[in-house]
Amino acid sequence: IISEVGRLDIRAQAAKICVYRFIQEALSNATRHAGASKILVTATEDDQHIRIAVEDNGTGFVRSSDEDGLGLVGLEERLAGLGGHLDIASDAQAGTRICMTLPKRTAE
């Protein structure tokens, strides 16, 4: 995880904190709630965006605003404040993939 994320060009402190909190929350959810035995973290960037995805093989979930924990809501708010967004794909048979996207201009 460290080597993948460490290669990204993130200089802004707020963006660094956002990336750290995203990975922390995604790993915590995968181990604590989904019972995942495998977790894959990937980090990519292009000229305009930084993307970090966390995929697991745990039990998926159906997202409901009534049941959302503060972690996902907090992540979405933090990302929105930096011009980014959060995408979540979850399936009980295939685990969960959570991906954050940040504009490169925010990370500089």
Rank of each mutant, 00 (worst) to 15 (best):
L102R: 05
D68R: 11
E4V: 08
K104W: 07
N57Q: 10
A36K: 00
T44L: 10
E76P: 02
L79D: 05
A107Q: 02
A36S: 11
G60K: 03
C99M: 15
E25Q: 13
G58F: 00
R97L: 07
L40S: 12
H49Q: 15
S65M: 12
V54W: 02
F22N: 01
I50W: 02
R78P: 00
A107Y: 03
L70S: 07
D91P: 05
I10E: 03
A34E: 06
E76Y: 07
L8I: 10
M100K: 03
H33P: 00
E45G: 05
G74M: 10
I1M: 15
G69R: 12
R105Y: 12
A107G: 07
G35R: 02
A26N: 04
K38F: 13
I39T: 14
G83V: 08
I88A: 09
G95T: 00
D87H: 11
S64V: 07
K16N: 12
L75P: 00
T31E: 13
K16T: 03
A43Y: 06
D47K: 15
A92T: 13
P103Y: 06
D56Y: 00
T42H: 06
S90Q: 10
N29M: 07
N57V: 07
A26G: 04
D68G: 05
R11F: 09
A53N: 09
H85E: 11
I1T: 15
L82W: 04
A80Q: 12
L102F: 06
H33R: 10
A15N: 03
T106W: 01
A36T: 02
V62L: 13
L27T: 04
S28N: 14
K38Q: 15
G83S: 10
G74Q: 08
R51M: 11
I2P: 04
G84P: 07
Q13A: 13
R78Q: 15
R7F: 03
G69D: 09
Y20P: 02
L70A: 08
S65K: 14
T31C: 02
G74Y: 07
S28L: 11
T106G: 05
T59I: 13
K38D: 15
H49E: 14
H33V: 00
D91Y: 09
R32M: 13
L75C: 02
L75G: 01
G83W: 07
K38A: 13
L8G: 06
A107F: 03
E4L: 10
R105I: 12
L75N: 01
R51V: 14
E4S: 14
V19K: 08
D9G: 03
R11S: 12
Q24Y: 12
P103T: 08
Q48W: 12
L102A: 08
A14G: 05
E25M: 06
D47I: 10
L40V: 14
S3G: 08
A36N: 00
M100V: 10
Q13G: 05
G84H: 03
I88R: 11
L70E: 11
T59E: 13
R97S: 10
R11N: 10
T96E: 01
D66R: 15
L79M: 09
A94Q: 12
E108Y: 12
E25H: 12
Q24L: 14
F22Y: 08
A14I: 06
A14K: 14
I98Q: 04
A107K: 01
R78V: 09
Q48N: 15
G35C: 08
